[in-house]
């Protein structure tokens, strides 16, 4: 027989960006251990709707751990108590009957709350727009042996590319720093041959945008790595630091003198 549980939720409710917001308490009776955390919220929302109340707004899309939409801070930990797991992949069997669960949105000035648990992560998009791309027509997949990539570089690029841009790193960081995200995005292009021509310009532009968005600085607490559902390593932050030093000191010659297209 599968276990069911009765839970008490303390949920951040906020009507919109200008609303002050506050916590509301909800009962969530008879929750099946097989539900995901989001399905549990779906059930709560259906009851709220049936009672004529506003459902709790939260983000989700793929519900299979790959899109990065579903960030919630659950009992003080981004994406909840399970390591390497997004909120949508977190199952209720990790909770117990009678538990009280506090659910909050990502907290960062750069991620303003839109409604309840939904935040605007547009700052991440603008960082990518600033430099997280390659300016060549990559076309369709090239012939596999046409452009050799060393195995360790390919592996590391893949590790970095695992970042789904969910923002848990920012949410977890005591400084609300976006260093792990920026480091992963810069590394996944900077480790590959197609990413080399713009490697140092890219790092400068992305870091400048990161700072402009109002994220905090990095104090090397490593909370980001602990919260990351894709277990991105802070080693990419060391690499970002190296690349930025190089970009601003050694590679100054490659500075763009005028604006390019785009």
């Amino acid at each position: 027989m599968s276990k069911t549980m009765n839970l008490t939720l303390h949920v951040w409710r906020q009507k919109g960006g200008t609303d002050i917001g506050g916590f509301e308490t909800y009962k969530a009776p008879e929750i099946s251990e097989h539900m995901s955390f989001l399905e549990m919220l779906d059930v709560v929302n259906e009851r709220l709707l049936a009672d004529g109340k506003e459902p709790i707004a939260f983000d989700s899309d793929c519900r299979e751990g790959i899109c990065g939409m579903c960030g919630l801070v659950i009992n003080g930990v981004p994406h909840g108590p399970n390591a390497a797991t997004t909120t949508c992949q977190l199952h209720m069997r990790h909770f117990n009957d009678g538990d009280e669960i506090t659910i909050e949105p990502w907290r960062a000035a750069a991620f303003p709350v839109l409604r309840d648990l939904v935040v605007d992560r547009g700052a991440f998009d603008r960082i990518i727009q600033a430099g997280g791309y390659v300016s060549v027509n990559a076309g369709s997949a090239p012939e596999a042996n046409g452009l050799p990539v060393a195995k360790p570089d390919a592996d590391r690029a893949m590790d970095a590319a695992a970042c789904i841009g969910c923002g848990a790193c920012v949410a977890a960081c005591p400084n609300a720093s976006a260093m792990l995200f920026v480091a992963a995005k810069a590394a996944h292009l900077g480790l590959l041959p197609q990413g080399q021509p713009e490697r140092y310009e890219r790092v400068k532009k992305m870091v400048a945008q990161m700072d402009a968005e109002g994220f905090g600085h990095c104090s090397n607490h490593y909370e980001c790595m602990a919260a990351c559902p894709k277990e991105i390593s802070v080693d990419f932050i060391a690499r970002l630091n190296r690349d930025l030093m190089r970009a601003t000191v050694v590679e100054r010659d490659h500075e763009e003198k005028s604006g390019g297209a785009g």
Binding site: V73, N75, V77, A109, G214, G216, H221, M225
Partner: peptide
């Protein structure tokens, strides 16, 4: 200024 509204509950895991 990077986190004007803090968490009610925040658990640090490694720091």
């Amino acid at each position: 200024a990077a986190r004007p509204i803090g968490y009610r509950l925040k658990k640090n895991q490694t720091t």
